[in-house]
Amino acid sequence: MTDFFLKRLSFNIVANDFTVAGKSSSAIKNFLKSMGLEASVVRRIAIISYEAEINIVIHSYGGKLHCDLYEDKITIISEDTGPGIANIDLALTEGYSTAPESVRELGFGAGMGLPNMKNYSDDFEIKSSSEGTFIKISVFV
């Protein structure tokens, strides 16, 4: 039996609010831990959801983060309204960043956000236009 859907957690992510950035990822992590998922899977999802959440905070006008729990996988969906990604191939290159200097000084904008999401996933899908970005990432359990 594959793709058997069990539950969805959803969070609103506010642009430019670094004081709560990471809170949704933390809620996702704690939920998955409480479900008894393997620590390595929880760690991968924590990395993926944090990067997705931070990207919405830095690069978009705001968006949503969803965590879908299936019988055989965990899927993180990030959807935002915003300027979108001009060149997805470049954005997936390690070290490439369009983050402004003001946030780089705080340790963001290493150019590892999307590469981390892709590297820690088993399935990675991204669509972007001038209206926003949609990313769907799965980790098999």
Binding site: F18, T19, A21, G22, A39, R43, I47, Y50, E51, I54, L106, G107, F108, A110, G111, M112, G113, N116, N119, Y120
Partner: peptide, 24 residues
């Protein structure tokens, strides 16, 4: 000091040494 690299490399029960002081 780069948060995404720390996210990817540091693990549970590690001490993290940094010059970053931001809330995140």
């Amino acid at each position: 000091d780069l948060l995404s690299i720390v996210m990817s490399k540091a693990k549970q029960n590690f001490v993290w040494i940094t010059i970053q002081t931001h809330i995140n």
